[in-house]
């Protein structure tokens, strides 16, 4: 699967602040791209944006790509971007296995931990749904 997703953040007013957290998970042979547009208009004095883009890879045949787009028209703006890529490696899986967890249980737990920062912002009912959906879509994704 190829997913090309992204966000737009447009600063128009003075002293506006924004924060973007993007978490992508790629399994199997999928490729995930994140494009994040941050626009700061001329009128947006002292705008501040922080973008964080994390990617998690399951296995070694998938990939993740991050493309930040910054359009800054006001010199007082402060725009920060941070990106990380991590992989559920063999050492991590072995550690979980050694505590009695199967590969599937381990991946489920690691992925949920990875998404926690986003999930905990969601309303309860939705967070429960999201978690279930994640478990289903991960079934059989690690060989």
């Amino acid at each position: 699967m190829i997913a090309d997703t992204g966000t737009k953040m447009i600063h128009i007013g003075k002293n506006t602040r924004s924060r973007i957290v993007s978490k992508g998970i790629s399994g199997g042979k999928s490729q995930n791209s994140y494009r994040g547009l941050v626009q700061v208009h001329k009128t947006a004095e002292n705008a501040y944006n922080f973008s964080q883009c994390d990617s998690l890879l399951l296995g070694d045949k998938c990939g993740a790509h991050t493309f930040p787009y910054l359009e800054i028209k006001n010199k007082s703006a402060q725009v920060e971007h941070e990106a990380t890529t991590s992989k559920i490696g063999e050492d991590l899986l072995f550690y979980c296995n050694q505590r009695g967890l199967t590969n599937e249980e381990a991946v489920d737990m690691i992925v949920n931990g990875y998404c926690k920062e986003v999930f905990k912002q969601l309303p309860m009912e939705f967070a429960v749904e999201a978690q279930k959906l994640l478990s289903i879509s991960l079934e059989g994704s690690v060989g």
């Binding site: 991590l92 505590r99 249980e105 737990m109 931990g113 990875y114």
Partner: peptide, 18 residues
């Protein structure tokens, strides 16, 4: 190893129950 976002409590609960 470190497991970001997974607390020792949750990890141990999963292990004990397994």
């Amino acid at each position: 190893v470190e497991i970001p976002g997974v607390s020792t409590t949750n990890f141990m609960k999963a292990a004990v129950n397994a």
